[in-house]
Design a protein around this nucleic acid. Structure first.
Length: 587
RNA sequence: GGGGCCGUGGUGUAGCCUGGUUAACACGCCGGCCUGUCAAGCCGGAGAUCGCGGGUUCAAGUCCCGUCGGCCCCGCCA
């Protein structure tokens, strides 16, 4: 027998056609003299009827069928008897009476139900991932992912980008995430690293004159995992020559819009808003703002200038800020207990406390009111424009703590109070990130983005004196509060790259040792260039609505970075270790 | 490195706080009946020493300690 079409394609147009179907037994309904089998393949489900009148042998075969048996069935598509149509199936108007049936393979009873809607522990799903992948939601997610690849490739090709593969075995670079290392057999004691990103290679492709490069590429980072992080993940990596920031942002938002349009049918409003980092921090408290709702941070440092309330006064005296967010009209939902929980929440981000101000018919109420003079209280009320039933939540601390604590609180409340329309897709470019930040651990400046990012031209003079104030030609794409991409215009002159290395505290020896090939390349006629990389998995999460990155990856790893299906990582044979001249430190 | 939630037949849960007969329910599985079901129905049956180890107790699924595993978060992720 030869398959004629997919089960899911057996629709009313095929009535009267002889079909041969192959697939899995999704469900079997045995009525004694008559057996129904829902036959499933990747395109869907069709009902097969086993009636001794159409095929005695087929009927006898059907009695032996069990869930997930793989079978072949031949029959002529017919309209179902009136009243027995199934509107839930796209094949529900028809059925296939089996004339002949063949068991191609038997199957053990599945270890968990493959119907989609029933909950199954993720541990089991990952152990038997090949069964999990039969379920319609993962089939759907991976097909959306496939659409994503195709749209990216078509778009990039149409816009003159050349797809180039870069090495997976490369050299370890300092800075950035922990590397996955691969020992070299031929050079005992030496290691390759798997790339955290193809950053340097794509820049060198610009040096080589490819002008526009892209790649859909695996990257590896040996860091702890989250719901949106896997040790190996996929980037859409892009680099362009002779461009400035606006060229990159303009074209890349077209790419993102194309993805959402062609995969999800959603038209994104362009141009995407641009939000300088400083503003994002001031208004949203985070550099990955969720702009689907307001509840902006409000600064009240000035009205608290004279306050005797110690936490605010001390914060201000140390150069800090007092800021808050307003919850409109829901003050009654915030009991003492709720406020205590929120206080614990913000303490997790370094805040020492959370001061609530409630507006009632009798005027503003707050446990800290007694420490405030009437003018300050009045100022706070007016600044937040507090009406009856409103609540303001206020933190006084260093600017970083105030921003993060309130920023996270804002997002938490946004979700919990239902202020976020989860159907919205709201992209925003965050721009002008700081180039450098001081690392207390390392006692030196480190790159906020990466060491090849170019500073804003007008900030170049700040290398002497206040490097932390230099803004970078760097940008992130944030969608619904999720960072989905980031990039920058790169340094294309040796001089500025050297200034950067100097600021990072690399000696010229260190710089030469680590990035010598790049420094050399910069001396051979490097064009101005810049680019971006998008987290492909995160984009697919947005396209599918998945809450975990594991739902958009065929064979993901657990939070502890193991593969439950293959058991990787594993110990290896001592022979292999010996070849690599590796000895394990028994401890 | 730290904090939190979870682990009970094949699956999903209840029971655990407040220790005490035979560990309950649904689905699945096995068998029987059944010619229009589609989460088919009806009848019957099998199946768990409660993740693992230790402790407390006359007695532990239940309390305590440790450990393993899954998930979420902080740190980390240029």
């Amino acid at each position: 027998m030869r398959r004629s079409c997919y089960c899911g394609e057996v629709t009313a147009e095929k009535v009267g056609e002889a079909v041969t179907l192959m697939g899995w037994v999704h469900r079997r309904r045995d009525h004694g003299g008559l057996i129904f089998v829902d036959l499933r393949d990747r395109e869907g489900i069709v009902q097969v009827v086993f009636d001794p009148e159409h095929g005695v042998e087929a009927y006898e075969t059907a009695r032996r069928l069990r869930s997930e048996y793989v079978i072949a069935v031949r029959g002529e598509v017919r309209r179902r008897p009136p009243g027995t149509e199934n509107v839930d199936l796209k094949t529900g108007e028809v059925e296939v009476p089996a004339v002949e049936a063949l068991i191609l393979n038997e199957a053990r009873t599945p270890v968990f139900p493959l119907d989609d809607d029933r909950p199954v522990s993720e541990e089991l799903r990952l152990t038997y991932r090949y069964l999990d992948l039969r379920r319609s939601s993962l089939q759907e997610n991976l097909r959306i992912r496939h659409r994503g690849y195709q749209v990216v490739r078509a778009f990039c090709d149409r816009h003159g980008f050349i797809e180039v593969e870069t090495p997976a075995l490369t050299r370890s670079t300092p800075e950035g995430a922990r590397d996955y290392l691969v020992p070299s057999r031929l050079y005992a004691g030496q290691f390759f690293a798997l790339p955290q990103s193809p950053q340097l290679f794509k820049q060198l492709l610009m040096v080589a004159g490819f002008d526009r490069y892209f790649q859909i590429v695996k990257c590896f980072r040996d860091e702890d995992l989250r719901a949106d992080r896997q040790p190996e993940f996929t980037q859409i990596d892009v680099e362009m020559s002779f461009v400035d920031r606006e060229d990159v942002l303009g074209l890349m938002e077209e790419l993102i819009a194309a993805i959402f349009r062609e995969v999800k049918g959603v038209e994104l409003h362009r141009p995407f808003p641009r939000l300088p980092y400083v503003e994002a921090m001031a208004i949203y408290g985070l550099d990955n703002p969720d702009v689907r709702f307001e509840m902006f941070l409000v600064e009240i440092s000035d009205v608290c200038q004279e306050t005797a309330f110690r936490p605010f006064a001390e914060a201000l005296a140390r150069g800090g800020q007092v800021k808050g967010i307003k919850v409109k009209g829901k003050a009654e939902a915030f009991s003492r207990k709720v406020i205590d929980d929120l206080t614990e929440f913000v303490k997790g981000f370094g805040a020492k406390g959370l001061a609530p101000f409630r507006m009632t018919k009798e005027g503003p109420q707050s446990p800290v009111a007694k420490f405030l003079d009437p003018a300050t209280l009045e100022g706070i009320t007016r600044r937040f424009d507090l009406k009856d039933g409103d609540l303001a939540l206020v933190i006084g601390d260093s600017p970083m703590v105030v921003a993060e604590a309130l920023g996270r609180l804002r997002v938490k409340l946004g979700y919990e109070l239902g202020l976020i329309d989860e159907a919205l897709i709201r992209p925003v470019w965050v721009t002008d990130f700081p180039l450098l930040e001081y690392s207390e651990e390392e006692k030196r400046y480190v790159a906020v983005h990466h060491p090849f990012t170019a500073p804003l031209d007008e900030d170049l003079s700040l290398f002497e004196g206040s490097p932390e104030k230099i803004r970078a030609k760097a940008y992130d794409l944030v969608i619904n509060g999720q960072e989905v991409g980031g990039g920058s215009i790169r340094n294309h002159t040796r001089e500025i790259q050297q200034k950067m290395f100097d600021a990072l505290g690399f000696s010229s020896d260190q710089a030469r040792q680590r990035f010598g090939f790049l420094l050399d390349a910069l001396e051979f006629g490097t064009p101005p260039h810049g680019g971006i990389a998008f987290g492909f998995d995160r984009l697919i999460m947005l396209l599918t609505g998945a809450e975990s990155i594991r739902e958009v990856i065929a064979f993901p790893k657990t939070q502890r970075a193991q593969c439950l299906m293959t058991g990787a990582p594993t110990v290896v044979d001592t022979v292999q270790l010996k070849e690599l001249r590796l000895k394990l430190d028994g401890s």
